[in-house]
């Protein structure tokens, strides 16, 4: 609210000073107080009361600069060059004995990011009861299954991602195989239902786009659902990873029921696409 314009506000603007100004503190040039670590004396020049502060060394040629040492000289020269607009200072070289460290540590060197991003995400989705090591062992078995299984026979009616490598290249790069399977069946949208917003207690379904990680998560959850319900052919600890791997192969070959789920999700999304405008009007999105 704007301040009210009236007489009292105008009076408040008129100020009078009833006592004198406080004496101002002397501000010394920062360049002069700065010193090198091995310098014995204090950085502050002797300050007499009321004496004018010493001038910076560059503007009076006859006056001796306050502190002279070769390093200081060099530093001051560099400052002057910067003042002239010449960047003589290379931060990667000057002032560092061993140069600057690399800005970004490559992923292979980071403990937390040593695995491929899809593999890491998917492994954590497989985890049960917080047993990450078991999930990792399962993932290793899945990848090994993929690279020992014969090249997939693709189904033209279920096209994979455009630009995917030929099928006989897939088994030798199991990470790519897994990524391709997951990304190919990943849905683009999900349905967000607003309860009771459509009138008559019906929910108001609005399609929402999914982020990349969300898409992968949904797809792999579907794959896991199918794999968990499958019957295993053998016994032992390799069975669960083998079932997941079989499902991944069947996704790439177009036999999996996960494709139907994806189709259903997309159908729902297209059927409800008109609700997007409504949702914008209702300021839901």
């Amino acid at each position: 609210m704007p301040p009210r314009l009236n007489f009292w506000s105008a009076c408040r603007a008129l100020t009078t000073r009833t006592h004198t100004f406080a004496p101002r503190l002397l501000v010394r040039p920062a360049t002069q107080t700065r010193g090198w670590a091995d310098k014995a004396t204090s950085g502050f020049p002797p300050s007499g009361s009321g004496a004018p502060p010493p001038l910076p060394p560059n503007d009076a040629g006859n006056q001796q600069p306050a502190f002279t040492s070769p390093e200081n000289e060099e530093a001051l020269t560099q400052l002057r060059m910067i003042e002239y607009g010449v960047t003589s200072l290379d931060p990667a070289v000057d002032g560092h004995k061993y140069g600057m460290p690399d800005r970004f540590i490559p992923p292979a060197k980071q403990v937390k990011k040593r695995y491929d991003s899809v593999v890491a995400q998917v492994t954590r989705l497989m985890m049960q009861d917080g047993k990450l090591a078991k999930a990792q062992r399962d993932m290793a078995m899945i990848l090994n299954y993929l690279r020992t299984s014969p090249p997939p026979r693709l189904d033209p009616s279920r096209p994979l991602l455009p630009g995917s490598p030929p099928p006989n290249h897939l088994p030798l790069d199991p990470t790519l195989y897994l990524t391709l399977a997951i990304d190919s069946v990943a849905p683009l949208v999900r349905i967000r239902g607003y309860k009771g917003m459509a009138g008559g207690g019906r929910s108001f379904d609005v399609p929402m786009p999914l982020e990349l990680r969300q898409r992968r998560r949904t797809a792999f959850k579907w794959i896991l659902d199918v794999a968990r319900k499958k019957q295993s052919r053998g016994s032992g600890r390799t069975m669960f990873p083998h079932r997941v791997a079989e499902e991944i192969v069947s996704v790439v070959e177009g036999r999996s029921s996960v494709w139907d789920k994806r189709l259903l999700a997309h159908k729902l999304g297209t059927a409800n696409r008109a609700n997007l405008i409504q949702a914008q009007r209702k300021k839901l999105i």
Binding site: Q231, R233, G234, S235
Partner: peptide, 11 residues
């Protein structure tokens, strides 16, 4: 389900 002995053979 697999017949008796099939699981072991697979393993």
């Amino acid at each position: 389900s697999p017949l008796p002995g099939e699981r072991k053979a697979y393993r």
